[in-house]
Amino acid sequence: MSAVRTAPPPAFAPSKFARSLTLIVLVVAMVYFMGPVIWLIIASSKSTADLLTTPPFAFSQLNWVANWQALMSWTGGQFPRWVINSVIYSSLAGVVGTMISLACGFAIAKYQFPGRKALLMITMTGLLMPVALLTVPLYVLFQTIGLANTPWAVIVPSLVSPFGLFLGRVYAEASVPTELLEAARVDGAGEVRIFFTIVLRLLGPAMLTIFLFIFVATWNNILLPLMMISSDNLKPVTLGLYGMASYYAPNKGAMMLGALLGVLPLVALFLALQRHWRAGLAAGAVKG
């Protein structure tokens, strides 16, 4: 994007109507997306009684300290640990899962081998399977091999992402020229070296997209840890908060504070990676 902005000539400028329509749509979108976040911030400051009786979008008594104490008490002091657990599980699943998705996607896009189409088809049917359906069979499996109630029970099933593989294949097909691979082979590079030194660089933007996708999916998965994890110190934050919510009278203010603090790492991650991400999406679009 050029640093100097010039107004487009009048003939190309959008009409007043189009401009105001865009503005309205953007404002509506902003309210739609930011509303819940603002509500969450306000709700996290209220006591349970205030949550029910005061207007939802106005602060009343600031109750953050009491809510924090209640949160720590309800979670037996484990809340910070749960957030760290979530970060560890999601990061590990994200990094390794991205590698697997890209390697498989690249292989399916660029290598000719028998059963390639069938393999892709089988993986794609995986996309149609709701994760919830697979949780109980997965639990039986992990129980049998003795991995239930370990961090692996949450991480390993999150490593494989049919959608990640699909994205990896599409990106590899679009942005890795076969000629480049042939040139590298002529120069004597092995397949592993080609993948790690050339292909991964070309797939940089895809990498980020898939990473974020797997990271968020792992972070938000609740059924899997609910089945797999029973030790308090291994729980991810989502499961811990769910534990507070499944009783008749949870401390709602404290839960809201937990929910707010629980998404902060996600928000930070998105803000940090946002620039790269946009660059990635644009790269695909402009180059063609």
Binding site: A70, S73, W74, S230, M244, S246, Y247, P250, A254
Partner: peptide
């Protein structure tokens, strides 16, 4: 022993 008690504040 697996339970579903709230274990809440206080």
């Amino acid at each position: 022993y697996i339970h579903r008690l709230p274990d809440g504040e206080g």
